[in-house]
Nucleic acid binder design. Structure first.
Length: 288
DNA sequence: AAGAGGCCCTGATAGC
DNA sequence: TGCTATCAGGGCCTCT
């Protein structure tokens, strides 16, 4: 589900909750996530303290005081929830990411702290946890991925070098985490709309101004999404958790058949499946 | 080697 | 009401 902005919001709220806290106990209900949970997962986490929480791209990085890094990727449907103990030792749901009345069914992993527990819920199980032994190995792992849009390495020279001779369409490049990290299916459509570039354009056909627009709007869209608390695109009933509001600002995503929001444009938003993912674009102002 | 498409999985919803 | 088909914020793997 989440792209970079949503993971950033999770990181911020999670950090307030678990930083400097000691992990007391782990209960694993289901190890079969996108990748099978490591056998030593409980042993490594138990009795360790959370030193720091950071984020790279769509990865949450939880640094433990035993030098290990606990990495969480939420996949399409992963969510984290805090269940607080109250005085009577009953639970009250205090989720910090959009959360329905959390059904127990997909609560795969429970991490117990002193006064609350953290639950990983993931119906589709496309998310995963991995353990990384130390900082060097973490850096090696992260070096597999391209820069985030905010990184100064994501610049004009970089785009030109990577794209100038490539026939792959630009939409697929924006989703390619080895090219740029953190953009997913929603924000790719939004970025290309603002840049006035058709998603199917061959990357090598882009001109210098279009490179600059992609860089500019990638930063702009993601930072605005973060400032709005991310996007929440499913209607969860009775949700007590925080919801993002960037979905109110979608220009094209999920607006198939509606009119283009560009000034003076009479276009209509179209939906087209590109490499198995839906893309949304204006049929007039995004030139092919 | 680059690039397109299949597939992992469950749940919500649209359409008949 | 109840069935089936389609689709969902990701990304690894395989095949051409």
């Amino acid at each position: 589900m989440p792209e970079l902005p949503e993971v950033e919001i999770v990181k911020q709220s999670l950090s307030k909750k678990i930083k400097h806290k000691k992990i007391q106990k782990i209960i694993i209900k289901n190890r079969n996530l996108r990748f099978k949970l490591a056998n030593n997962f409980s042993r490594i986490l138990k009795s360790s303290k959370v030193k720091n929480i950071s984020r790279f791209s769509k990865y949450l990085i939880i640094e433990l005081d035993n030098n290990y890094f606990w990495i969480i990727h939420l996949g399409m449907s992963g969510t984290l929830h805090i269940i607080q103990k109250n005085k009577k030792n009953l639970v009250s749901n205090l989720s910090f990411y959009h959360s329905p009345n959390l059904p127990n069914k997909h609560n795969h992993i429970h991490i117990f702290f002193d006064k609350f527990k953290l639950i990983y819920n993931d119906p589709r199980r496309f998310g995963f946890f991995i353990l990384i032994k130390n900082k060097n190995i973490l850096e090696k792992f992260l070096s597999n991925y391209g820069p985030e849009p905010f990184d100064k390495k994501f610049n004009f020279i970089y785009l030109k070098k990577k794209l100038h001779n490539k026939s792959k369409n630009i939409k697929n490049y924006l989703l390619d985490q080895k090219f740029v990290s953190g953009i997913g299916n929603i924000y790719a459509s939004e970025i290309l709309f603002l840049a006035k570039i058709h998603p199917l354009r061959e990357s090598k056909s882009l001109n210098l101004i279009e490179y600059k627009k992609i860089i500019y709007f990638s930063k702009k869209v993601l930072s605005k999404a973060i400032s709005k608390g991310g996007s929440t695109i499913q209607n969860f009933k009775n949700s007590s958790g925080k919801k993002g509001s960037f979905q109110k600002y979608f220009q094209v995503y999920d607006r198939d058949g509606e009119r283009c929001l560009s000034k003076k444009c009479n276009g209509v938003v179209k939906k087209k499946v590109i490499s198995n993912r839906s893309s949304f674009y204006c049929n007039i102002c995004q030139k092919f």
